[in-house]
Design a protein around this nucleic acid. Structure first.
Lengths: 147, 147
DNA sequence: TGCGATTGTTATTCATATTATTACATCAAA
DNA sequence: TTTGATGTAATAATATGAATAACAATCGCA
């Protein structure tokens, strides 16, 4: 029961692109090295985020460009872009017995509440900006360099 | 990426026990039939909920007894009792590169925010009471019987 | 005391989802 | 047209979830 690594990897992609993008070309191979995940996974996430309008990619010359300022990208944007099965955070058991009065009605009694909880979770994700993560990384790196 | 069926099954167990408990002995086999899941799974969840103090069980004579009034059991109590890996809702990729400044600091920059989002999710689950589900089931069954 | 019923628990298998890997087509720019 | 990157499919490896079988442990009752 965990949200897949795709989510944290995608945020890592954005943060690393912001950090390295000024100085060098950011490719799936470079990101793969920073993240420690397979380049194909990175490319898949790049593709997902491209479809969601968060980044631009180019073949050949390669490299990622972030299309929106990071302070306009929330955790929810990333979550929505890359996570599968996000439509149903809760997983209902398949076959409650239709001949049992409880089994027959459990769905109706539960679904609204689960949807509400899921909605609240998603809304909360909108409160975290990727730019804040990027800022913290800059700070942490500066602190390291100073010491 | 889904919360396992354990959670909804556990709520089903409580609701069915409340509904049937007055009239008959509620065993893992009975629940298994209502829920459509294997009795061993049910027993495992019974055991988890027993440890969490939500129900009492007995061998031999068998049957579940709910030890707390249902309006004192929230979705969070159930979630906490049965869900594995609930300590880390978000799944970090294992091996960010320690030699990369971003890979090296991504954890520190992200963990607090992920913990906060997780905490909010858990807090929200405390707003839903199992008794409300049970009440709705009673209502729905009565409506069916009337028609 | 011994029997039947039920929970408690382990081990095994099966199914599904996640991640890694290989391979190669596609495309953009020099 | 060559080079270097993305895009994507197919496959394998791994992890997790769930089903199942088997049996020990326990309780109540005759």
């Amino acid at each position: 029961m965990q949200i897949s690594t795709k989510f944290t990897i995608a945020i890592h992609i954005l943060a690393a692109t912001e950090y390295f993008g000024k100085d060098m070309k950011v490719t799936s191979d470079l990101l793969s090295a920073s993240i420690g995940a397979n380049p194909v996974i990175i490319r898949g996430l790049m593709s997902d985020m491209k479809k969601a309008g968060l980044i631009e990619t180019k073949r050949g010359p390669g490299g990622i460009t972030i299309t929106k300022p990071l302070d306009q990208i929330t955790f929810y944007d990333v979550y929505e872009a890359v996570e599968k099965n996000k439509d149903e955070l809760f997983h209902f058991h398949e076959a409650p017995n239709p001949n049992c009065p409880v089994g027959h009605n459990i769905h109706a009694a539960l679904d609204d509440r689960l949807e509400k909880a899921q909605k609240h979770f998603e809304e909360d994700l909108k409160n975290y900006k990727v730019s804040d993560v990027a800022k913290d990384i800059h700070k942490l790196i500066k602190k390291e360099e100073a010491s």
